Amino acid sequence: MRLPLLFAASLALFSCRKSDDPSLAPGEGSELVTEEDCGTPGPSGYQVLLRTQQQAVQLPGTVETFLVSKDNVFNTSGSDHLIASLTRQDDVLSLRYCGVLHNGMTADTGPARSAISLQDLPAQVYRLRITVRNRHTTGTLDLTTTPARLSFADTTVAAVWR
């Protein structure tokens, strides 16, 4: 009974090991930068550009506010997804931009983009903590105005996209 269990465990360990065979590598368009890779420096001058945007939703006369972001490099596909997360603690919003999900759907190069809904946030002024890979900056997001206003302390990390 122990032999089949031991064999199955060693087979599982062997199959989980990364292969050096390029034919077994994930296909183009499936690369994902994980949280562990978030601390790696981006290309020289890597920056995230942000803006708020309102879009009509299905209910007549209602709009939803989004925080739209893009990076400032030309990725393998103009439809790549910029990995972004938003957490809130009282009046502080923490934004984290960790990498790019390459989908390789088009041959066009362009910036990776993401959108985060702000619809559930009360209209007030929020302090921002922004992490772009291994760099940090602070800023503010004022949702009491239309359009909402963004400002950043270090515009080499994050800036307003116009």
Rank of each mutant, 00 (worst) to 15 (best):
M1E: 15
R2D: 09
L6P: 01
A8R: 13
A9M: 14
S10G: 06
A12G: 07
L13A: 14
L13N: 09
F14A: 13
C16T: 09
K18P: 12
D21P: 07
D21G: 07
D21A: 08
A25Y: 12
A25C: 13
P26R: 12
P26A: 13
E31S: 13
L32M: 15
T34Q: 07
E35D: 10
G39A: 03
P43V: 10
P43Y: 13
S44T: 11
G45W: 15
V48N: 10
V48G: 04
V48W: 06
L49K: 14
L49M: 12
L50E: 00
T52C: 14
Q55G: 12
A56P: 09
A56M: 09
A56Y: 09
V57T: 09
V57Q: 13
G61I: 08
G61L: 15
G61H: 02
V63T: 15
F66P: 00
F66K: 06
F66D: 00
L67Y: 01
L67G: 01
V68D: 01
S69D: 03
S69C: 14
S69P: 03
S69R: 11
D71G: 07
N72V: 10
N75M: 05
T76W: 04
T76Q: 13
S77K: 03
G78F: 11
S79F: 15
I83Y: 02
S85I: 06
L86D: 02
T87F: 06
R88P: 03
R88E: 10
Q89D: 14
D90V: 04
D91H: 05
D91K: 08
L93E: 00
L93Y: 00
S94H: 08
S94I: 07
L95P: 06
L95G: 04
R96Y: 05
T106C: 07
T106V: 15
A107V: 11
T109K: 11
R113I: 00
R113D: 03
L118G: 00
D120S: 15
L121K: 02
P122G: 00
P122C: 02
Q124M: 04
Q124R: 10
V125F: 05
V125A: 07
Y126A: 04
R129T: 04
R129C: 06
I130V: 08
T131F: 02
V132A: 06
R133E: 14
R133M: 12
R135D: 07
R135G: 13
H136P: 01
T137P: 02
T138I: 00
L141Y: 10
D142P: 12
T145K: 15
T146N: 14
T146Q: 13
F152L: 07
A153R: 01
T156K: 03
V157T: 04
A158F: 02
A158H: 00
A158W: 01
A158M: 06
